[in-house]
Design a protein around this nucleic acid. Sequence first.
DNA 1: TGTACATCAGTGAACGCGCGTTCACTGATGTAC
DNA 2: TGTACATCAGTGAACGCGCGTTCACTGATGTAC
Lengths: 224, 224
Amino acid sequence: MRARKVKTEIRQEQFAQAALKLVAAQGWQRVSLAAIARQVGVVTSAVYRHYKCKDDVLNAVLDLAEQKFRRNVQIARSTATEPVAQLHELLRRHVNLIVSGLPIPRVILSEEVLAGSARHRERVNAIYQAYLGEIVAVIRNGQAQGSITKETDAETLSLMWLGLVQSPAILWVWSKGAFDLQGHCERAWHVFAKSICTERCQAANGAFSRPHPVGRRLPAMPQH
Amino acid sequence: MRARKVKTEIRQEQFAQAALKLVAAQGWQRVSLAAIARQVGVVTSAVYRHYKCKDDVLNAVLDLAEQKFRRNVQIARSTATEPVAQLHELLRRHVNLIVSGLPIPRVILSEEVLAGSARHRERVNAIYQAYLGEIVAVIRNGQAQGSITKETDAETLSLMWLGLVQSPAILWVWSKGAFDLQGHCERAWHVFAKSICTERCQAANGAFSRPHPVGRRLPAMPQH
DNA sequence: TGTACATCAGTGAACGCGCGTTCACTGATGTAC
DNA sequence: TGTACATCAGTGAACGCGCGTTCACTGATGTAC
């Protein structure tokens, strides 16, 4: 059966979304153009009407990822005014990005990107650097206005912030979602927040006194 | 030219080591049996004299990784007696594992393992669970003898500990070693250690008062 | 110590499969007159 | 409003390449007598 004819901009978007979904589920290398095309409802070779090659599709996926990152930063900045609260909000959103079925960090960690073409490595590097740059800015902000301790440089803290999600996210993938990523991140955040907040900030923010209770523990090993 | 005939146990070891090295450099999917065989100095089909299939070679690589992890834990436990010091020592060793050219975490993060066969996912999961289990044990130890705060559960802290290296390690890979992973981890460790140590422990351990200076900053973006 | 035979590692050619990519063709949509 | 033509998205067959895997054969090593 012949698929309906659709404008190339729309198809490009469809392919990118389909690819994002599939890559998130299986990793880039395992996703074939055939699978992407099937998802969209056209034949494999139709992809070439809208993208020059498979690489370009991945690039479009990275565009989507970049957008999501940017949007999250914007929203977090406008939702909260206090830098520490902004960091907390962004962390929550980052976790949601992973849990919501669009595990974008998965795309970014994919082998194609870690070991693959220089083009993609640099691209992802750029996205992450920009993201970390935003975090650094927020932290500096907090340091300037006295809510975050100046003892440690903002770059180190920004990477620590990211590390709060990154490793647990891997565990989450392995456990197929059984591991309580959100709960863990909240608990980890409290430890982290406490250690970077000045007394002034801690006094103003009573929330740190009550860490979230542990819900599910580490996932049990799968039985063989 | 015909390769010298070598006992199968030795060849197995050689293939595993060669595979580890190559996987660390390029990721599993990109490593071909041809490349592994070339590294060892035999012809591709010779691999089948010693392994049933490519999957089995990866399994041997995971054996090596598991050994390294185990060894590090043992050494860290015997080198230091105080739990906090043990965590510090193990962190240093973990970083060295990455920096030393045998980026084992890279193997473990590889797509084959994240998205690949259930067999390998479960295997790696088991290795990591065991590793984290050791960390948890050390932390509980510290909590019991009063050097680590009991405010946060040991599981959460163990994942935070791992996160200190994991994310920066990715940056390190991207920057092709330009990022100062060791320096960062030392600085991050001090922040973390301070936040989990009780006053008693901090008083006993003056080292926490002087965080390491920032050497190289985040790596500059590669130029296009 | 020498000979005969079994075992086992190494070789290269060939197979088969998956998959990205190309291409000539079809048919729908949009535009000019 | 209708006709002619250009543009452009969709199709399926075919190609080519990489790579894991198989297989019959070679030749070295080790063992039995």
